[in-house]
């Protein structure tokens, strides 16, 4: 099944649930009408929260840059010994 179909199925199920709520009198009609707006706001908040958490916990590795420089020096020395001309930079 194409992914878009899965997402549409979920949307249809949510819409059906919402229409069901509108038809029945479980919640007042005026509030039930606003539920999709709340849903969109909730999704937006979820997105912002996840981006925020991701930014706060973003894994960085400054030590790797140092190790890489050491490895480059080691490799250049090794290759020079083997007679490989790797330029002067």
């Amino acid at each position: 099944m194409k992914h878009i179909v899965k997402i549409l199925c979920i949307l249809v199920a949510v819409a059906a649930f919402w229409i069901g709520l509108l038809q029945s009198a479980v919640v007042p009609r005026s509030q039930a009408l606003l539920l999709p707006v709340y849903l969109i706001i909730t999704l937006g908040c979820y997105g912002l929260l996840m981006v925020g958490i991701g930014l706060m916990r973003f894994p960085t590795c400054p030590q790797e840059a140092v190790l890489l420089q050491q490895d480059i020096i080691e490799a250049k020395d090794f290759l020079k010994q083997k007679g490989v001309d790797i330029g002067s930079d």
Binding site: V51, G54, L55, C61, E64, A65
Partner: peptide
């Protein structure tokens, strides 16, 4: 894991793209 050499904007773009 991790990344080195990205500024805040680059991290923000990356995280946003990933969440999306």
């Amino acid at each position: 894991g991790g990344v080195h050499g990205w500024n805040l904007l680059r991290k923000l773009t990356s995280r946003g793209a990933n969440v999306l």
